[in-house]
Simulated scan of single mutants.
Amino acid sequence: MAEVQKKLKVVVSLDLGPEVMPLLYNQPNLDVVVWPHESASGKEWLLKNIAGADGCIIMLFEKIDAEVFDAAGPNLKVVSTMSVGYDHVDLKELAKRGIKLGNTPDILSDSVADSSVMLALMAGRNTKQATNVVEKGEWPGWGWSPYGLCGPQMSPNSPQDIRTVGFIGFGRIAQATLARMIGFGYTRCVYVARSKDPARAKEIEQTIKARHPTLTTVQRVELDQLARESDVLYILAPGGPETYHIVNETFLKQMKKTAVLVNNARGTLVDSDALAKALKEGWLWGAGVDVVEGEPNVTVDHPLVKEPRCVMIPHIGSATWESRIGMGTIAVQNLLAGLAGIPLVAEVQVSKV
């Protein structure tokens, strides 16, 4: 009599939907444990169900630390996060235990770039104040005036009006955002990036200039210059100690009064109190944020929520059907590869982080 092969246990902390879950359910060697609701499962559920798991798929809002790894036990081979960022996972613990980590880059670059430009437009054109006029029933008595609710125009007003787009972080999403800004007539790009290698910077800059011939400048600069020169500044760098509050009061005081700041990366990169003060005192024109420190515990009393020139959306930068289904699919592919002991589709090199 043939020996029955033991199934591998995988835990999925949030149902990935009808387009993705069959990729797991159709694997006869898997025992799939899934939180079946659209809301977050919570750490208590994960700790209770991850015992004995060989692999797991997690979300960006879940803290995966030693407590989770201890609860899982020695069988855990792979953690697959349905996100680009992985600052919610304890990398030292992963490395110590020899567990692989997969993430989902690339697939969401276009959707996040789209939403980044959307936020810049919304913040620059006073969308929050303008929609409030309508939604609060104030339009009938509001009274039009030539300069009412005016803001800085995104695109240059003439060939002599040279605009500069700035980036904190210059990876795939930033470069996709840059391509969109070129369509608005931007010819200068300045950025700061993790790598300080001049040869690497020159290679990137030459490649981008060849791809976008209308760009006159692509230049890695220091933070102070980035703050001073950016007409629109996009924050698209990873979270973590290295970038914590990289945008602070000192940085914001150097920005143009007509500048717009967009954070579509991680909330920890921006000091929220400093940004609220900067907007209130007019150090820059407006801000659009998809992420904020302390999320999702953000209430109507949050200083940025109360600020009229700050447009805030609830971390939905990648919220298109195409991106989310693609992210879920890659998360499953990473999990299956880790269980099979083969290279992941998108693997974070934990020992190098």
Rank of each mutant, 00 (worst) to 15 (best):
residue 299 T to Q: 10
residue 228 R to F: 03
residue 53 A to Q: 12
residue 67 E to K: 11
residue 166 G to P: 00
residue 115 S to C: 05
residue 221 V to I: 02
residue 351 S to H: 13
residue 285 W to C: 05
residue 7 K to V: 05
residue 78 V to W: 08
residue 110 D to C: 06
residue 246 I to D: 01
residue 35 W to I: 06
residue 170 F to Y: 14
residue 73 G to N: 08
residue 32 V to A: 06
residue 247 V to A: 04
residue 242 E to W: 01
residue 38 E to Q: 13
residue 66 A to W: 03
residue 151 G to F: 07
residue 317 G to V: 00
residue 126 N to L: 09
residue 145 S to C: 01
residue 274 A to H: 02
residue 172 R to W: 02
residue 98 G to W: 11
residue 76 L to S: 09
residue 203 E to F: 10
residue 121 L to E: 05
residue 339 L to D: 06
residue 131 T to E: 12
residue 6 K to G: 12
residue 258 T to E: 12
residue 73 G to W: 03
residue 143 G to N: 03
residue 167 F to Q: 04
residue 269 L to N: 15
residue 32 V to S: 09
residue 23 L to M: 15
residue 299 T to F: 13
residue 304 L to C: 07
residue 155 S to L: 12
residue 52 G to I: 03
residue 289 V to E: 03
residue 62 E to T: 06
residue 25 Y to N: 15
residue 100 K to L: 14
residue 65 D to S: 13
residue 224 D to G: 01
residue 295 E to H: 04
residue 66 A to M: 01
residue 249 E to P: 00
residue 28 P to M: 10
residue 271 D to C: 04
residue 51 A to T: 15
residue 139 W to R: 05
residue 292 V to H: 02
residue 344 L to S: 11
residue 256 K to W: 09
residue 220 R to L: 01
residue 298 V to S: 07
residue 202 K to E: 15
residue 275 L to Y: 10
residue 186 Y to K: 10
residue 281 E to T: 15
residue 91 L to Y: 06
residue 166 G to W: 01
residue 151 G to R: 08
residue 295 E to Q: 13
residue 207 T to P: 00
residue 55 G to E: 08
residue 278 A to L: 12
residue 71 A to T: 08
residue 165 V to Q: 03
residue 13 S to N: 12
residue 60 L to H: 02
residue 72 A to F: 04
residue 24 L to W: 10
residue 142 W to E: 07
residue 109 S to C: 10
residue 338 G to Y: 06
residue 141 G to P: 00
residue 295 E to T: 08
residue 188 R to K: 14
residue 29 N to Y: 08
residue 15 D to Y: 15
residue 80 S to F: 05
residue 184 F to W: 14
residue 337 A to V: 05
residue 102 G to E: 10
residue 105 P to Y: 04
residue 102 G to W: 06
residue 252 L to V: 02
